[in-house]
Simulated scan of single mutants.
Amino acid sequence: MTTPSDTAASDPRKDSLIEYPSRFPIKVMGANVNGFVHAVIEVARRFDPEFDPSTVELRDSRGGNYLGVTITVTATSREQLDELYRALTSHPMVKVVL
């Protein structure tokens, strides 16, 4: 016999504070160089085919050497977000992902 607590424990969606699908902002920092924003957008599109580049927010560092890029993706699962974070953090142009 299955109890309600057994069902909740076997449902990975119950382990997350995020309800899927949802809009999920991710901040990506890197050197302020040509191609950085494009590279971040391309990674976002691999994980969210409906990603809209017009929603990208940019913020220069105080000295202008670094650029903060906020992308907002449609998160569909914890696995999708984990893979997206891995892809971003392993990209050679990316310094930090929040």
Rank of each mutant, 00 (worst) to 15 (best):
T2I: 10
T2K: 11
T3R: 14
S5T: 15
S5Y: 15
D6H: 06
T7G: 05
D11R: 06
D11V: 11
P12D: 05
D15G: 03
D15L: 07
S16R: 05
S16L: 09
S16Y: 05
L17V: 14
I18A: 02
I18C: 05
E19W: 13
Y20D: 03
P21M: 09
F24C: 00
F24M: 01
I26V: 13
I26R: 09
V28Q: 05
V28F: 06
M29A: 01
G30E: 09
G30F: 08
A31Y: 11
A31S: 13
A31T: 13
V33A: 09
F36E: 04
F36Q: 01
H38S: 12
H38D: 10
A39F: 02
E42Y: 07
E42G: 07
R45S: 08
R45M: 06
F47R: 01
D48M: 00
D48P: 08
D48F: 03
F51V: 02
D52S: 10
D52G: 01
P53Q: 08
P53F: 01
P53C: 00
E57P: 04
E57V: 10
L58V: 05
D60P: 06
N65M: 14
Y66S: 05
Y66F: 06
L67E: 02
I71M: 11
T72I: 02
A75E: 04
R78L: 10
E79I: 02
D82N: 12
E83D: 15
E83I: 02
E83V: 04
Y85M: 08
Y85A: 02
L88H: 07
T89D: 09
T89C: 06
S90F: 03
S90H: 09
M93P: 01
M93R: 07
V94S: 00
K95E: 10
K95I: 10
V97E: 07
L98I: 06
L98W: 05
